[in-house]
């Protein structure tokens, strides 16, 4: 495998609040290779967005960040603000969750696309930048792109705005694209299209992508690898196939059985995970998933580490029973109490 584009080592993010220290992200490590797509899955408060914001250095100054983030041979946390700005939007670009507010309402879409291009390439003429903006809009599937450039964001539908955000994200051909819940704010019917557009845009530019989502179902056709986060910790990581069919983590399995299926032959009730996500100020003792886990034993009062489940450490799971879980899978749900 080629050398990684992005290498995150022992990243921790903490916020000091009046109620105590919020440990939003705890010791996560991962890599992203050029051109590949990594999906980061987890529910609200799992730390997935915070770690992405840490990559982009967009966290407020009250955040305490530890660990190292190496991007393309550079230490991102050590860069001066000036050098960081040179990377932002140029080599690393971000697509945001809510296209309704991520575009400035008082400027035309074209205006904002042109600015995104020219902020990093001041020598590009306005006309050339506009042409490039139009071709970007066309690439993300907006018809009459040249006319559309003169529209204001409120004249776009939600799906079109997200397409425009994607166009903006790839307009400088970044090496890494971070998509933070890009479909959450959209209608279900539009989500599939937008994911398709993101994939097409990614292929057109050859960018690597971190796709952050709480919807494990969205990930299947898009990502090569999946990383499941819970309570600010990495719970399981592995190739998408492995995670879907041979997950070795009770939390991941819970996520999978809560995906609605259109093809299930027998009628089955969705299996939600009982309980609520852990508090980041007072996490449960031992394994943070213990209070909600149906396999929990006394051993789970000590926190498990990430266990390697294959030679290359592609598949790792944070569970004392990661190895045994595989057997339980074939023994069917009868053993679950």
């Amino acid at each position: 495998m080629s050398s990684p584009l992005l290498s995150v080592r022992d990243l921790s993010v903490a916020f000091h609040t009046d109620d105590g220290v919020v440990n939003a992200v705890n010791d996560i490590s991962f890599e992203v290779h050029p051109g590949e797509t990594l999906a980061v899955v987890g529910e609200s408060g799992s730390g997935k967005s915070v770690s992405a914001m840490a990559l982009m250095r967009l966290l407020p100054s009250s955040a305490r960040i530890q660990g190292t983030i190496e991007f393309d041979g550079r230490d991102l946390l050590g860069l001066s603000p000036r050098d960081m700005r040179r990377l932002q939007g140029n080599e690393i670009a971000m697509i945001f969750q809510d296209p309704m507010t991520a575009l400035n309402p008082v400027f035309t879409v074209g205006n904002q696309l042109v600015e995104a291009i020219r902020i990093h390439n001041p020598k590009v003429s306005k006309r050339a930048a506009r042409e490039r903006a139009a071709s970007m809009l066309a690439l993300v599937g907006i018809p009459d792109a040249d006319e559309r450039l003169d529209n204001y964001p409120h004249e776009f539908s939600g799906g079109m705005r997200q397409r425009a955000m994607i166009a903006m994200g790839i307009s400088n051909e970044p090496k890494l694209l971070i998509a933070d819940e890009p479909t959450t704010a959209l209608d279900v019917t539009i989500q599939a299209q937008v994911i398709e557009v993101i994939k097409r845009a990614q292929e057109a530019t050859g960018a690597a992508m971190i796709l952050i989502t709480h919807d494990l179902g969205l990930v299947a056709g898009v990502a090569e690898r999946v990383q499941v986060m819970y309570g600010g910790r990495l719970f399981e990581t592995g190739p998408t196939e492995t995670i879907y069919y041979r997950s070795r983590n009770p939390y991941t399995r819970g996520l999978i059985s809560s995906i609605p299926s259109a093809t299930a032959r027998t009628e089955r009730r969705l299996a939600p995970i009982p309980g609520a996500p852990p508090s980041a100020i007072n996490p449960p003792k031992g394994c943070v998933f213990r209070p909600r886990c149906q396999h929990a034993t006394d051993e789970c009062f000590t926190e498990p580490g990430l266990r390697r489940l294959d030679e290359a450490a592609l598949h790792q799971s944070r569970c004392h029973y990661a190895e045994q879980l595989g057997e339980m899978d074939t023994a069917a749900s009868g053993s679950r109490t």
Binding site: T108, G141, I142, P143, D144, E147, R148, D150, N151, E155, S157, G159, M160, T183, V188, T189, I190, Q191, A192, Q193, I195, E196, V197, K199, R200, D215, G217, L218, V219, A220, G221, V222, I259, P260, S261, A262
Partner: peptide, 26 residues
């Protein structure tokens, strides 16, 4: 449609759907 069949949806349909009823005079 669940997200898992995302890749099967033709994007041209999306384009057409969004085009409908939109005036583009600016």
């Amino acid at each position: 449609p669940p997200g898992s069949i995302a890749a099967d949806v033709p994007s041209d349909a999306a384009v057409l759907a969004e085009r409908e009823g939109m005036n583009i005079t600016s």
